[in-house]
Design a protein around this nucleic acid. Structure first.
Length: 572
DNA sequence: GCCGTTTTCGGCCCGACTGTTTTCAGTCG
């Protein structure tokens, strides 16, 4: 039973208890456990085997016992019982925006509505307004919510959300009434996918900001418009919220709206113990009500005797402990990246010549670029035959002779075949500056097959980097079933680096596994997998993801100087 | 259900907006 499956069960338990009107803190305890499990880099099975379940923050005796039951029997009696106690359809109803546990309960008990379909019919017939607390507007909102769920409320990729947010920020910034406009929320935390975009604005004329925001070209629908907060849905179906605050509360608001929710709850608990109260307007003394901080995030954290925690780390895991103990990492900065280690040229399925790539990379301030075109097996991607690869190496040497202060590294993205053998002979691999091995087929193999396959590739001394280790495409293809922790342990032994593929659809390895890599001392190589020059800019999302994984410059290969990098790649 | 430099009991983050009310509950983040 996977972490994901266990988290889903606890999440359903929380929903069921919520609908039944149980103690809300019990509901929250289950939700907290769900988030804790989702944040694990390790399988619960392994933690269970070591008897360390209760060391997980948010997992106490009762939940540990339930995890034990799930892992040993594959079932949970408590869950079966609770699930049987309410109709299945109620959980689906809860997924509709505007419909929460109280409404579900009322709809079910008073009108016998127990499916989304029945709810839709009743709303259309104007039956809901008979219930106390329900009116015509509520009916319309519920119908809209149902349509929204049917369309599938997909989360937006970090790169797409960033682009949209930056365009809105730019337009709001042009107003003379606006002094600052910045993204907050999960976007500022650089989460790999974004639900809603939050933008925070400092202005003394909030109404003007609200009016401008709700009438932007991209707006399809205004879902809320207040004096300091408005929400819209764009034509691309993304929800965007804008909040306006006063200058003196900006730090508190930025902290508050950056989240994560769990991080903020932890901060508030600390504040409470110190006789302080935090809200989006500032930090206040509980006794006197006097505001003691709020202008900047520095002030807010300082009021709790903490250094500012970088937004990417605010995940509600152990970052506050680390901050208190002075153990926050010096996270990787974009400016520390000296080159891209995964770029495709026109030799395989890329669009540009090596010379064009060099020029673009120099413009980005890099001092090297790793060309890694596909190998022969990948026919669809114009994979190189060994002879073509030899030719490419020659050309790269020729280009390098003409370059000053820049170096093209001759590499290849070599296919790991289904049987674990590599797609190029060793003699050829030996001539390359670096070899990135990757799985591009046979995703459906068993966990053991896939893990063994990658192991045999990594054990080849010429292989320096394992590309996109889990093969996932965010929102499109699940990661293949591979034991990432075991792969990392093998990498430690063989000295292989793990790629962080910075392509917007991949971000592979993901944050929790990067952190595990750091713990194990496995180096990370960031590559954009660019197939054209514009994709070279995806590096920023790679850097952001390493930051979420607590990586520092010393953990990342492409912060090294050319000489040191070449040496490190040979060693690997 | 979790948790403990006040605690093994009694707390558990906080406010905006909406729609329904005529002072507030529900939902959301």
């Amino acid at each position: 039973m996977t972490n994901r499956e266990i988290a889903t069960i606890f999440s359903e338990i929380a929903d069921i208890l919520d609908i039944k009107g149980e103690n809300p803190f019990k509901v929250r305890a289950y939700q907290k456990a769900v988030r804790a499990i989702e944040g694990l880099s390790e399988e619960l099975r392994a933690i269970h085997a070591r008897g360390e379940l209760r060391q997980i923050e948010g997992v106490g005796g009762a939940i540990a016992k339930k995890i034990d039951e799930l892992l040993t029997t594959g079932k949970l009696q408590y869950y079966e019982r609770e699930k049987a106690s309410i109709p299945d359809g109620l959980l689906a109803m809860l997924k509709i925006p505007e419909v929460g546990p109280k409404k579900v309960k009322a709809l079910y008990e008073k009108l016998g509505i127990d499916t989304v379909e029945k709810l839709e019919v009743a709303a259309q017939a104007g039956k809901l307004r008979e219930l106390p607390g329900f009116g015509e507007k509520t009916e319309q909102n519920i119908l809209r919510g149902i349509a929204l769920v049917r369309r599938g409320r997909e989360r937006v990729l970090l790169a797409d959300a960033t682009e949209l947010a930056e365009s809105i920020v730019e337009k709001l910034s042009q107003l003379k009434e606006v002094s600052v406009a910045v993204p907050a929320g999960s976007l500022r935390r650089q989460q790999e996918t974004i639900g809603d975009i939050d933008i925070l604005v400092i202005s003394h004329a909030p109404q003007k900001v609200m009016d401008t925001f709700t009438t932007l070209d991209c707006v399809a629908e205004v879902t809320a418009k207040g004096t300091t907060k408005s929400s819209i849905r764009t034509k691309d179906d993304v929800q965007v919220d804008v909040r306006v605050v006063e200058k003196d509360s900006f730090g508190a608001a930025l902290q508050y709206f950056t989240g994560s929710k769990e991080h903020n709850i932890q901060l508030r608990e600390i504040a409470m113990k110190r006789g302080l109260k935090i809200n989006e307007y500032g930090v206040f003394s509980e006794k006197t009500g006097k505001m003691i901080a709020g202008k900047s995030e520095e002030e807010v954290y300082a009021a709790l005797e903490l250094p500012v925690i970088p937004p990417e780390l605010r995940q509600g895991l152990d970052e506050i402990d680390a901050a208190r103990d002075g153990k926050l990492p010096a996270l990787l900065e974009p400016s520390q990246i000296k080159g891209d280690l995964h770029v495709h040229s026109e030799w395989s399925d890329g669009k540009n010549s090596i010379e064009e790539i060099v020029e673009a990379c120099r413009a980005l301030g890099y001092t090297y670029v790793g060309i890694a075109d596909h190998s022969q097996s990948l026919g669809v991607a114009g994979g190189l035959e060994p002879e073509r690869c030899e030719k490419q190496i020659e050309l790269i040497r020729k280009i390098n002779r003409k370059l000053k202060g820049f170096r093209v590294l001759a590499g290849a993205e070599v296919d790991i075949r289904s049987d674990g053998t590599l797609d190029f002979p060793n003699e050829l691999l030996a001539k390359l500056d670096f070899v990135t091995a990757a799985i591009h087929s046979g995703f459906k193999q068993t966990r053991k097959q896939l893990t063994d396959r990658v192991r045999s590739a990594m054990e080849n001394p010429h292989v320096t980097i394992l590309a996109h280790p889990t093969g996932r495409l965010i929102g499109r293809r699940d990661p293949f079933d591979i034991d990432v922790v075991e792969i990392l342990q093998i990498a430690k032994k063989t000295g292989t680096a793990m790629e962080l593929n910075a392509h917007q659809l991949r971000l592979d390895l993901k944050d929790v596994h990067l952190r595990k890599a750091k713990e194990l001392g496995v180096k990370v190589a960031i590559g954009t997998d660019a197939h054209d020059l514009t994709e070279l800019r995806l590096m920023r999302y790679g850097v952001a993801t390493t930051r979420r994984g607590w990586l520092e410059s010393k953990n990342v290969l492409n912060t090294l100087s050319t000489t040191k990098l070449l040496k490190a790649l040979k060693h690997a």
